[in-house]
């Protein structure tokens, strides 16, 4: 099993992003995803900036994948997507079928992100036939679902051509909307958002009226209110999962990278995750629970 680092889901200043990836270069992560996946108005870094970082990370031995926007609506967004899909130096992470179609047209291969709806072996095979190299299952799927899916003869016939990657740490990507909830939380219309997401490097936490964290607002994306953490479930991934995917946070990401790296490479030791973390989906429970 290898470690992958998801694209930064929040909106960070350019200097912070660059500093972050300088540290990633020295971390035990095997694969790094780069790019803006949430909002096309977040333009601290351009494609050229990302390519520069990508080349540096590659030089330090990392496999680099360029991630693309999830909710594509405007013509300009498709045009930008085309620029990503036209380059062939780096693998593309498709988060919408528009990206799948574009990469497949030039005979390229791609990673399917977890917002691409692939729930069964026949869909999986179709995507592999179109060039999918790595599959990120929808985050709501359990280990059991994965085992049953991959046990299907249709899936077995392509398993050797496919890597399976599971979202294992960070706030779960749960929904995408036309509405910008961060702008709304500041009582601003989306058209006049003033890029306020940049003030919330970990998003904004939403609490119930009983003060339990329930969601995290990240622009047009809604994330889980509590952190997903499969550190204590690493053993149950062996032989099933090829990449353990971690989502960057503003703090302590590198400590968690080390902990996951140790858990993967050392003998199984009993690890407990913080009480406030969750792992329900993996155990076929509601996502917000911890087993």
């Amino acid at each position: 099993m290898k470690l992958s680092l998801a694209p930064i889901s929040y909106f960070w200043p350019k200097a912070d992003v660059q500093a972050f990836y300088k540290r990633v270069a020295d971390s035990p992560v095997d694969r790094v995803y780069l790019g803006e996946t949430i909002c096309s108005k977040r333009r601290e870094l351009s494609l050229d900036d990302y390519l520069r970082i990508a080349n540096e990370l590659r030089a330090s031995g990392k496999e680099v994948v360029l991630s693309t926007l999830t909710l594509l609506e405007a013509a300009g967004e498709l045009k930008e997507l085309q620029r990503y899909c036209d380059q062939s130096d780096f693998l593309i992470e498709a988060n919408d079928l528009a990206a799948v179609q574009r990469v497949a047209e030039r005979g390229g291969s791609f990673v399917a992100g977890n917002a691409v709806n692939c729930y069964n072996a026949s869909t999986l095979k179709r995507l592999v036939d179109m060039g999918m190299k790595t599959w990120n299952p929808p985050v709501e799927l359990s280990r059991e679902w994965l085992v049953e899916l991959l046990d299907d003869p249709v899936a077995r016939s392509i398993r050797s051509r496919l890597e399976v990657e599971v979202f294992s740490f960070g706030y779960l990507p749960l929904a995408y909307s036309a509405r910008c909830f961060t702008a709304r939380s500041e009582d601003r219309p989306k058209d006049d958002c003033r890029l306020c997401c940049i003030n919330y490097p970990n998003g904004r936490t939403v609490y119930t009226q009983e003060d339990d964290p329930i969601f995290t607002l990240n622009g047009i994306q809604t994330q889980s209110g509590q952190r997903y953490n499969l550190l204590s479930d690493i053993d149950s991934m062996r032989g099933l999962v090829d990449f353990v995917r971690l989502s960057p946070q503003a703090e302590a990401t590198f400590d968690w990278i080390d902990q996951f790296h140790n858990a993967i490479h050392n003998d199984p030791i009993s690890i407990e995750i913080p009480e406030s973390d969750i792992n329900g989906y993996w155990h076929k429970l509601e996502g917000m629970r911890q087993l």
């Binding site: 709806n117 929808p138 709501e140 929904a175 995408y176 909307s177 889980s224 989906y281 509601e286 996502g287």
Partner: peptide
């Protein structure tokens, strides 16, 4: 529905 349909797991997050 205010979320992009088919890409919303809020309900399974809370209820499974």
């Amino acid at each position: 529905c205010i979320m992009a349909e088919g890409r919303c797991y809020l309900s399974s997050y809370m209820t499974g």
